[in-house]
Design a protein around this nucleic acid. Sequence first.
DNA 1: TTATTAAGAGAGTTTAAAGTCTTTTATTGG
DNA 2: CCAATAAAAGACTTTAAACTCTCTTAATAA
Lengths: 145, 145
Amino acid sequence: MFFSKTCEYAIRAVLFIANRSEDAPKAGIQEIAQGIDSPGHFIAKILQVLVRNGLIQSTKGPNGGFYIDSQNRQYTLADIVKVVDGERLFKGCGLGLSQCSETKPCPLHESFKGIRQQIYETLTSTKIGEFNEALNQGLQYLKER
Amino acid sequence: MFFSKTCEYAIRAVLFIANRSEDAPKAGIQEIAQGIDSPGHFIAKILQVLVRNGLIQSTKGPNGGFYIDSQNRQYTLADIVKVVDGERLFKGCGLGLSQCSETKPCPLHESFKGIRQQIYETLTSTKIGEFNEALNQGLQYLKER
DNA sequence: TTATTAAGAGAGTTTAAAGTCTTTTATTGG
DNA sequence: CCAATAAAAGACTTTAAACTCTCTTAATAA
Ligand code: FES
Ligand code: FES
């Protein structure tokens, strides 16, 4: 809807890992792919990018896997979106003009500005660890089945 | 941002035609492509779909072109979006679950619901003819240059 | 009624996103 | 140190959106 498929997977994966990291040991790729119902090799690629950008942690080898340490749990969804999809959602023109501009606005500029603002506030105010309880209680889901 | 590129072009083209149709004669493809800075053959394809769905009108031959008759000027942006991009923007899950559900919601469901609602209200309340004055006065733009 | 004009239709190409596979590198338990 | 494990890296394939081209059909003006 707003995000690329890659970014949707990324968010779901990070929420999954954040939840797992609270108590249990590191999560492996197979487990994550399972937990968010995504293609294994594909989510692996995405996680590499998140690790490279410091949003999540990983270690190789036995008992290795992905995790999120306590300080990184303060990251917000906006951080993930910026890394994966860039600033387009926050700064692009909704009608596809090459740049959104106050001085040469498209007809929907004012409307879009408000909507974009609401999206921005939502994403910057949502921390990646804040759904753990609801997820554990089965009130929210990261996959269908 | 929210729309496919095709849909962005479609909206810009319809706004252009609605504006042109107020006074001037029908607009040809070249003129439209020029006016919204889009690939000519591509916008031609898109306009075919809009005509087929009754959102705009066209006639072939000399003095032919695209236009919007007075009753169709009541259409809203939401009508264009539905025809071109379908209902995904209004009904899809923002985290990519195969369907948005109240009973098995994703963690962002409540947030997305509000944003989606705002988008929906904006698009359904915006008529395709309402920007004519601002466009003519050069206060709003359908292309960069 | 015919030449010209402009949209319609359909097939084809390009590009970028999505997804897959195979090899390499790092970690660690034995 | 060595075997096993699991992520990192890179190349590759598939798919769908974006874009192009050519030919056909309809309208009309002369
Ligand atoms: S110019 Fe289009 S959203 Fe600002
Ligand atoms: S379930 Fe994800 S937006 Fe409703």
